[in-house]
């Protein structure tokens, strides 16, 4: 298989009124063509920052960033902004943003907003672009007349489908989905998940699926990477990670998911997510870790390989 996206030592710091916030610290992973990777972690752990870095839409208050993002072998952080805009943005990499409910401009028609990237890249008119939008809408199960609707006239599920249509309009190789179902109710969530699976199968899309819900990720992802406090703590095939979680955080995360069957009540993770302005020393998880030992406080664990899985925990060193 060919590597599509190679993230190497990505680090992103923000300047806030309290100080420097280390949102992403030394994150590396690879994504192959047509592969779906889940990026799992609590909110505020840096998942969205990684997505924004790939989209090159990080907010203005980034004060430090380093690392490489190789897309098809080329570092897309290093190329000029104009070239990124002309060749990569939305044409090769697109994104479904978190909170689809507010992702549409309330005063423009849905179809028009979906067609905009197409109109701009091919320099065609709205009349000409409409056919393509209609085709995509029917593929995603949206009635054709939705084109003429305004955002407030659509349900959450319909908006999410329209967002997907917008992300797919230029037929990209990689789509980043940032919590694509979290604002939807469960039955609509299932519909969207099924739609995503179909797209993955039919279009050969590579996807980065960002979620805080590890079971949801297991439903669609080939591989799963778990983030904690800005760091990647575990990375491996979905099956491996789910059946045999190595990092104490991943274990806790899985144990915290309620199950329909089984006599075990869901556990909770003691403590609260760390403050990324003053992250804990050593392993960032040590204050909440059930198996913590002395070295965890002083030594920052590197990524260890344990079988096919990589894990950032001193237990495996």
């Amino acid at each position: 298989m060919m590597v599509l996206l190679d993230v190497r030592n990505l680090t992103i710091h923000y300047m806030t009124e309290r100080g420097v916030l280390r949102a992403v610290e030394d994150v590396s992973f690879q994504l192959e063509k047509g592969e779906t990777m889940g990026l799992v972690g609590e909110s505020g752990c840096g998942k969205t920052s990684i997505a924004l870095a790939i989209m090159r839409t990080l907010p203005d208050n980034v004060c430090f960033s380093s690392g490489e993002l190789l897309f098809d072998g080329e570092d897309i952080l290093a190329i000029p902004a104009e070239r990124y805009d002309q060749e990569i943005r939305w044409r090769k990499i697109s994104m479904v943003f978190q909170g689809a409910l507010n992702s549409f401009n309330p005063v423009l028609r849905i179809g028009f907003q979906v067609a905009e990237p197409l109109m701009q890249s091919r320099k065609i008119s709205w009349d000409k672009a409409r056919g393509e939008v209609a085709r995509l809408f029917s593929m995603l199960g949206l009635p054709e007349e939705t084109i003429w609707r305004y955002p407030h006239e659509l349900s959450g599920g319909m908006k999410q489908r329209a967002m997907l249509a917008m992300a797919l309009i230029l037929r990209p190789k990689l789509v980043i989905l940032d919590e694509p179902t979290s604002a939807l109710d469960v039955s609509v969530q299932t519909q969207i998940m099924n739609l995503l699976k179909r797209l993955k199968r039919d279009m050969g899309l590579a996807m980065i699926f960002i979620t805080h819900d590890i079971t949801l990720a297991s439903d669609i992802c080939d591989r799963i990477s778990v983030m904690y406090a800005g760091e990647l703590v575990e990375l491996g095939d979905a099956d491996d990670v789910l059946t045999n979680p190595l990092h104490p955080y991943t274990r806790k995360l899985l144990a915290a998911t309620p199950r329909l069957r089984g006599d075990r009540p869901p556990e909770y993770i003691p403590g609260s997510p760390p403050d990324l302005v003053n992250p804990p020393s050593g392993c960032r998880f040590h204050p909440r870790c059930p198996v913590m030992f002395d070295r965890c406080i002083s030594v920052r664990p590197p990524m260890f390989s344990s079988g096919r899985v990589k894990v950032r925990c001193l237990l495996y060193g």
């Binding site: 989209m55 839409t57 978190q98 992702s103 309330p106 905009e116 990237p117 701009q120």
Partner: peptide, 17 residues
């Protein structure tokens, strides 16, 4: 600060548009 502006920016709309 609305999400839709971030989306529009991400999808590469020209700044004046």
């Amino acid at each position: 600060r609305e999400d839709f502006v971030a989306v529009a920016r991400a999808k590469g709309l020209k700044e004046n548009l």
